[in-house]
Design a protein around this nucleic acid. Structure first.
Length: 552
RNA sequence: GCGCCCGUAGCUCAGCAGGAUAGAGCAACGGACUUCUAAUCCGUAGGCCACAAGUUCGAAUCUUGUCGGGCGCACCA
C-alpha cells in the first residue's frame, strides 16, 4: 500500500525529469522499487538512476542527484532521501505514514489483505484426484494441502474458485481392486480363492470384504463379474478419502467422474475432431495422435489395439470440458510423477483450438517421510505406506497442513515425524500460533485491568515510534502485496515465511516492551497495534488453513 | 541416452523481476522468567551460494557445459 504510493510518486518524478530534459523516456517501466534490506538504506530504494544512466549513457550518480532533489519535495511521504553506492537512491518514509496503515488494518479486519485483482475470473483448481483404490497417502496429503491453500489464495484475491476432484472408477486399477476384494471375501468364507498377483494388499481390503460377508453372506461366492466388489470398495474408499479430507478441513465443490466423459460421448468427440483435422491416424491396430506436430519427439497412442483408450484421451476430453464449462483459468496440481502427461494434454488442448496458456500446471516433488531420522519406505500395493489419516492421528491437522506447505512445491519435502510430533520450540508451527495466542491474551488482560483501547480515531498512533513498532507497521503494510504475489505465483509457502517473520518481530517486541503500562495513551496505541498484528496473523493462518488459537 | 525439478551454514530451507556487507529455523555454545502466556527472548559461532566459463556497471539469481540427487520417458494412470 505504501510502496505503491511511493512507486506512483517515483513515476511522477521520472516523467518530470523527462519533461525537464534531464533524461530520456527510454527507461520507462524498467526501474524498480524494492524494500531495503538494511535499515541504513531506508525503507525503499530504487535503481532508477542507474537504469536511466545506462540508457542515456550518463553518470548514474549525477542522475541520482536530480532524483534526490525531486523526491525530497514529497514532504507528506518522504522523511529523507540519500544517494548511495553506484547510484542507488534510498528513501526514508515518515513515521506517521507507517502509523497510518494501522487504522486500515483494524477497520478492514478479516478483510484486510483481500483484493480483487482476480476480477471475478473463473478458476478451476483440480487436485488430489486420487482414484479410489486406497486411503490417501502422504503424497496426496501434500497435494491436498497445497491445492486447498492455492484455492484460498485465489479466492482471497478475487477469483471465483471451483475445487474439483477428478477420478476414474473404470480402469484396470479398479478391476484389480474388485478382484482383490473378491479374493478376501472368498477367503473369509473359507473358500478357495486366488489373490491377484498385483492386487492391493492393504488391511482395508479385508475390512471391505468383511462388510460384504456381513451384508451378503455367501450369496456372491459364484459371482463372476467383479462389479459388486468394485462398487462396494469404491464406496467405502471414497467415504474414507472424504473423511480424511474433511479432517484436514478440505471440501471439494465437484467430483468429476471420468466415466461420464464416455457416457456423454465426449471422448469419441475428441477423436472425431482430431481425425477431421488430420491429427490422428491408424497404425498397428491402434489410433495415434500426431503429437510430433506439437514439438514432441514421437506420436502417442490414444486408443490401444484392444479398443481401450489410453489415459491421454479422456484427459484431453476432460480438459476440453473444462474450457467448454467456461473457466478462464485452469490450475492442475500434480505430483512430479505425472510430468509426462502434461505435454500430451497440452498438445491436445492446442490441437482442439484452445489456448493452452490458460492452463497452469503446478508440479510438486515427492514427500520423504522421516521417522527417527530414517526414511520410511512406502509402497501403495503392499501395506507399507503411511496414510494421511495416520499423520492426522499423530500430529493433528494444523501441523499436517503446515508441514506440507512450508516448502515450495518444487522442493522435495522431508516430513520429519519426530519434529512434527514435538510440542516444543523445535516445532515451527507453534511459533505463529503462539504469537496469535499471546496477542489475544494481551487484549484479555487489558479488559481484566479495565484498560479500554477506545475508538481508533481517538488513539494517538504517533506514539508508536519505537524502531520495533515502525518495522512491524512496515511489515503489516506489505501484507496485501504479499498475498497478491503469493496468489498469482500459486505459492502458499510465501505466506508462511512472511508470518514466521512477523511473529518473530512480535515475540521480540513483546520481550522488550510492555503493551499495557501506566501510560494510558501509549497503552491504547499499543493495544491497537497488537490488535492489528493479531488480525494479520489470523488472516494469514486462515489462508493456509491453520487455526489461530486465542490461547495455548 | 532424452526431458522436468533440485544443489545456498552441521541439518531443513527462504532469497520476489539480476543490485549494496547472502538470510531464517533447528542443532551447538553462553545468558534472560516476583512484571501482558518462557511453545518466548538476547548473544556467540557457523558460507568458495555444487563446479567452470559466459552475458554486464553489477550474478545465488540469466545462458551454456560438467558433476551430484529426485521424478519421468508405455498400446499403465
Amino acid at each position: 500500500m505504501i510502496k505503491e504510493r511511493f512507486g506512483a510518486e517515483l513515476d511522477q518524478c521520472f516523467r518530470q525529469g523527462v519533461e525537464q530534459g534531464l533524461w530520456s523516456a527510454a527507461a520507462a517501466g524498467m526501474y524498480v522499487v524494492e524494500n531495503s534490506k538494511r535499515a541504513s538504506h531506508g525503507d525503499f530504494s530504487t535503481n532508477m538512476a542507474m537504469v536511466v544512466a545506462g540508457k542515456d549513457r550518463k553518470n548514474p550518480r549525477e542522475v541520482a542527484q536530480h532524483l534526490v532533489v525531486m523526491l525530497g519535495e514529497k514532504k507528506d511521504l518522504v522523511e529523507k532521501v540519500e544517494l548511495a553506492g553506484p547510484g542507488f537512491v534510498n528513501v526514508f518514509i515518515k513515521p506517521e505514514v507507517w502509523q497510518s496503515v494501522l487504522p486500515g488494518v483494524c477497520e478492514q479486519n478479516e478483510k484486510f489483505g483481500l483484493s480483487d485483482v482476480g476480477a471475478g475470473r473463473k478458476v478451476l483448481v483440480e487436485f488430489v484426484s486420487a482414484n479410489p483404490t486406497g486411503p490417501l497417502s502422504v503424497g496426496h496429503g501434500r497435494q491436498a494441502a497445497l491445492g486447498d491453500a492455492i484455492c484460498r489464495l485465489l479466492a482471497a484475491t478475487g477469483h471465483a474458485v471451483t475445487r474439483e476432484y477428478y477420478y476414474n472408477d473404470a480402469g484396470r486399477q479398479m478391476r484389480v481392486l474388485g478382484e482383490s476384494v473378491r479374493a478376501r471375501y472368498l477367503e473369509q468364507l473359507g473358500l478357495p480363492n486366488e489373490f491377484p498377483e498385483d492386487g492391493y494388499q492393504g488391511e482395508y481390503i479385508r475390512d471391505i470384504a468383511a462388510v460384504m460377508v456381513k451384508e451378503h453372506g455367501d450369496r456372491l461366492k459364484d459371482q463372476v463379474d467383479v462389479t459388486p466388489f468394485k462398487q462396494s470398495a469404491e464406496k467405502a474408499i471414497f467415504e474414507d478419502i472424504n473423511g480424511t479430507l474433511l479432517r484436514m478441513g478440505i471440501k471439494f465443490d465437484n467430483y468429476y467422474n471420468e466415466h461420464s466423459l464416455y457416457d456423454e460421448g465426449l471422448v469419441d468427440d475428441v477423436v472425431t475432431i482430431l481425425r477431421e483435422k488430420g491429427l490422428v491416424y491408424d497404425q498397428d491396430g491402434a489410433v495415434w495422435f500426431k503429437t510430433t506436430k506439437f514439438g514432441m519427439e514421437k506420436d502417442r497412442v490414444i486408443i490401444k489395439s484392444t479398443g481401450e483408450p489410453t489415459y491421454r484421451l479422456p484427459d484431453i476430453a476432460y480438459h476440453r470440458e473444462k474450457f467448454r464449462r467456461g473457466f478462464d483459468w485452469m490450475v492442475n496440481i500434480f505430483g512430479s510423477d505425472h510430468i509426462a502427461t502434461v505435454p500430451d494434454v497440452m498438445a491436445g488442448i492446442e490441437a482442439l483450438g484452445y489456448d493452452q496458456s490458460k492452463v497452469t500446471v503446478v508440479l510438486h516433488q515427492f514427500v520423504t517421510l522421516l521417522r527417527e531420522g530414517k526414511q520410511v519406505k512406502m509402497s501403495t500395493r503392499k501395506a507399507t505406506f503411511v496414510t494421511v489419516d495416520e499423520l492426522l492421528d499423530e500430529v493433528g491437522p494444523d501441523v499436517v497442513r503446515f508441514f506440507f506447505l512450508m516448502r515450495k512445491a518444487d522442493s522435495q519435502l522431508d516430513f520429519d515425524l519426530d519434529l512434527a510430533t514435538k510440542q516444543s520450540q523445535e516445532n515451527p508451527v507453534y511459533y505463529m500460533q503462539y504469537g496469535h495466542a499471546r496477542l489475544a491474551s494481551i487484549q484479555r488482560k487489558a479488559q481484566e485491568l479495565g484498560v479500554e483501547r477506545g475508538p481508533l480515531a481517538e488513539v494517538s498512533l504517533e506514539l508508536l515510534v519505537e524502531p520495533e513498532e515502525q518495522s512491524m507497521l512496515k511489515s503489516m503494510a506489505a501484507y496485501p502485496e504479499l498475498v497478491n504475489s503469493a496468489a498469482l505465483a500459486l505459492e502458499p509457502h510465501r505466506i508462511i515465511f512472511y508470518m514466521q517473520e512477523l511473529a518473530g518481530q512480535f515475540h521480540s517486541y513483546y520481550s522488550k516492551h510492555r503493551v499495557i503500562s501506566d501510560d494510558l495513551p501509549l497503552s491504547k496505541a499499543r493495544l491497537w497495534l497488537a490488535e492489528g498484528l493479531r488480525i494479520i496473523l489470523d488472516n494469514g493462518l486462515t489462508l493456509i488453513g491453520v487455526k489461530a488459537p486465542d490461547s495455548m
